[in-house]
Simulated assay, not measured.
Amino acid sequence: MTPGTFELLGFGPQGWGFLLLKAAGTTIAAAICGFFLGSLFGLLGAALKLSSLLAPRMIGQFYTTIFRGVPEILIVYLLFFGGSVAVTQVMNLGGFPGFYSLPVFVIGVIAIGLVSGAYQTEAYRSAFLRLNRGQIEAGAACGMPRHLLLRRIIAPQTLRFALPALGNIWQSVLKETSLLSVIGLTELLRQAGTAAGSTRQPLLFYGIAAILFLIIGRMTGAALGGLERHLAKPWSR
């Protein structure tokens, strides 16, 4: 007897519900890790592009040009195959023969981080250029140390101005996790494909995957929107 729709989506012996939710969790984890790794790359890239020296600016421009211009899936493939070769060579030189590779989750996070970092670079750079220089100069004139100036004036306002762009980048990162299925990571799209092939119900499972992506995107987008509204309020102190 062929299982019904609710049975296929349930948590019973023939249901795929648990596996789909687990894959959705992997998607969220990869997106969060990749986004925050991209934030580190983005801050570093923005610092390089805002430097008064030519060499750092050229490095920052090279980074953003490469990772914004090359297709994301190609970055994933390059890291997947090239990373395995690099790790194997390093281990062999260290006296450990054989073949070595990084976990696909780590490779996926690094790929997403590099690509999103290139876009976050421009978001942070543009936000920094919007800062009121008078506030920075006033803080410096009052004898405020550089780290305190960064923490109290530069960082909060830069984040406030960058947040709308970061929200759009987050949505792109969330969708880019589906590319990691090509290297074997069991995220939402790959698990939906496995279920569709096993049950011959592609419309059902790909539709469920689309709905889950929409739900995750809407929920996280609402959270970022709330943070944006909170930071837009005038300070009470």
Rank of each mutant, 00 (worst) to 15 (best):
I28W: 07
I32T: 12
I32G: 04
F35G: 05
L37N: 02
G38Q: 03
G38M: 04
F41A: 02
G42L: 12
L43K: 05
L43V: 11
L44Y: 00
G45E: 03
A46R: 07
K49W: 02
L50T: 13
L50Q: 02
A55F: 12
P56Q: 04
R57C: 02
I59Q: 03
I66V: 15
G69C: 08
V70Q: 03
P71N: 09
I73N: 12
I73T: 11
L78I: 13
F81M: 09
G82C: 06
S84Q: 14
T88M: 06
Q89V: 00
M91V: 02
M91D: 08
N92F: 01
N92V: 04
G95W: 07
F96H: 15
F96E: 15
P97G: 00
P97M: 09
G98Y: 05
Y100N: 10
S101I: 00
S101F: 14
P103R: 07
P103W: 04
V106S: 14
V106M: 11
V109H: 12
V109G: 11
I110W: 11
I110G: 03
I110P: 01
G113W: 11
G113M: 10
L114V: 08
S116A: 11
Q120C: 11
E122S: 12
S126C: 08
S126A: 15
A127S: 11
L129G: 05
L131A: 06
G134M: 01
G134N: 07
E137A: 13
A140I: 01
A140L: 14
A140V: 01
A141R: 07
G143E: 01
M144A: 09
M144E: 00
R146D: 15
H147S: 15
L149S: 10
R151Y: 00
I153F: 07
I154Y: 04
P156Y: 13
Q157Y: 06
T158C: 09
F161P: 02
A162M: 09
A162Y: 05
P164S: 12
P164F: 14
L166I: 06
